[in-house]
Each structure stands twice: as structure tokens, then as C-alpha cells.
């Protein structure tokens, strides 16, 4: 099985503080991976480093064999926590924007998803609620046929129905060449769709296992184990 994401001794400091400390990771293609940790544990830092939105203090990241840059941006679809949509385009225009810049973007898929979520492509981004904007963003990201999807807290602020839709989209979008990494602190909701989990605590990886290994060995859910590991 080939590797899609590799981190070697990856460290990121902000000021004097370690946000990530000597992280070693190896993630294969065709997996759905949960990056789990409480707020401030380094999840977002790790994802930003993979997107070249931050530069490592030391160590390295390889995505499909390349350091973060133009080549990796072509194969990575990223959903940040922030809403990055501008306030002047229509939904159909932002779809064209994505199509212009990403060769792996599938407009048909995007319009299909918009229809299913009852979003009018002629609507202006400006007039949308925060929840709808988040849905549009997810549609844009999932409409790419990328090799690595990095979803930062995709289910954080959405209602249960939308959450189910997101999980459904991730499963139906699955292919054996692409890996989905999603960060969250709401584990029980997504546990079933995950295959591998990574526990991250204070900038360090404390556990990497498959969900079934945990359930088999510990006799408890990942959620229950998480509560134990990260007990305050």
C-alpha cells in the first residue's frame, strides 16, 4: 500500500512554544483517518503545515512524495475551519473559480450536491447564513477528485442532518486511491466511518490505531478511550 502523507520529526514552534513536537506519521492511501484531540492540541497546526499555510520549524512533510507546494496543492483538497468565501460571487461563480484553478474539480458533482441540499446556484454568497456557507465550502472541497482530503472540524458547527449528509458524502466519495483525514473533537458522531485514528495531545501523537483494534483490545469505543486519555 503506498503512502500519501508522511511526516518526519515534524516540529512547529510559535514564539518559544511547541505547537507540534517531533511528529512522525505515515498514512496510506484509501483510508478514512480521524485526527482526534482536544482544542489546542495541534490538529489545525498539522493540517495547515500540510497545506503550506505554515512552514515547519524543523522536520519535513511529504505528500505523495513532494514537500508542500504547487504539486501537492493540486492533489490536496482542504476544508479549513474558517469560511473563506468572498462576499461578491454567486455560488455558480465560485464553482467556476474552482473549475478554473483545479483540474480535478467535477462541476457536475458540485451542482448535484447543491441540488440535494437545496442551495440555488444563483444565490449570492453574501446573503447566505454561516451554516449554508459551510455547506457550500464542503461541496466545493468534496467535488474535487483529490488524492488527499484534509477536513478541519467539518462537523463542528453544523446541525445533525447536515452532519449525516457530510458523513454520507465522505463515504460515497470514497475511493481506494484517496485518503480522507478529518480532525474533530466530536468523536462519537464519526467513529463508525473512521478506519484509523490518531490521538494528538499537546502537540504530540500519543496513539495511532485502527478503530477495531481499539474496540477489540480495550473493549470500549474510541470515544470512551478518548475521554480516558484526555481526562482533565
Amino acid at each position: 500500500m503506498s503512502t500519501i502523507l508522511e511526516c518526519k520529526n515534524l516540529t512547529k514552534k510559535f514564539g518559544g512554544k511547541n505547537a507540534l513536537e517531533a511528529v512522525d506519521l505515515n498514512i496510506s492511501r484509501g483510508r478514512i483517518v480521524g485526527l482526534l484531540g482536544p482544542n489546542g492540541s495541534g490538529k489545525t497546526t498539522l493540517i495547515k503545515l500540510c497545506n503550506e499555510l505554515l512552514t515547519p520549524t524543523s522536520g519535513e512533510i511529504l505528500i505523495g512524495g513532494y514537500h508542500p507546494g504547487i504539486k501537492t496543492k493540486k492533489i490536496v483538497a482542504y476544508l479549513p475551519e474558517n469560511t473563506y468565501l468572498n462576499d461578491w460571487m454567486k455560488v455558480s461563480e465560485i464553482i467556476n473559480f474552482f473549475k478554473d484553478f483545479y483540474t480535478d474539480f467535477n462541476s457536475e458533482k458540485a451542482f448535484d450536491m447543491l441540488k440535494r441540499l437545496n442551495i440555488d446556484p444563483q444565490d449570492k454568497l453574501k446573503t447566505m447564513s454561516k451554516g449554508t456557507k459551510e455547506k457550500v465550502q464542503l461541496i466545493l472541497v468534496m467535488s474535487r477528485e483529490a488524492q488527499l482530503y484534509l477536513l478541519d472540524e467539518p462537523i463542528g458547527g453544523v446541525d445533525p442532518a447536515a452532519r449525516d449528509y457530510i458523513l454520507d458524502t465522505i463515504i460515497s466519495n470514497y475511493n481506494e486511491n484517496a485518503t480522507v483525514i478529518l480532525s474533530t473533537h466530536l468523536i462519537s458522531d464519526i467513529e463508525r466511518i473512521l478506519e484509523d485514528i490518531i490521538f494528538i495531545k499537546e502537540g504530540q501523537i500519543v496513539l495511532t490505531k485502527t478503530v477495531d483494534e481499539i474496540r477489540d483490545e480495550e473493549g470500549k469505543s474510541v470515544d470512551a478511550l478518548f475521554r480516558e486519555v484526555f481526562k482533565c
Binding site: I32, D168, I171, S172, R192, I193, E195, D212
Partner: peptide
Amino acid sequence: VRDLAQEAAVNPNT
């Protein structure tokens, strides 16, 4: 597999 996984809301690999 994908349809079954979707129906059960589980990972397709599982």
C-alpha cells in the same frame, strides 16, 4: 460495498 457502507454509515474498508 459502497452502498452497503453508506447504508450502515460505516467505513467502506471495514
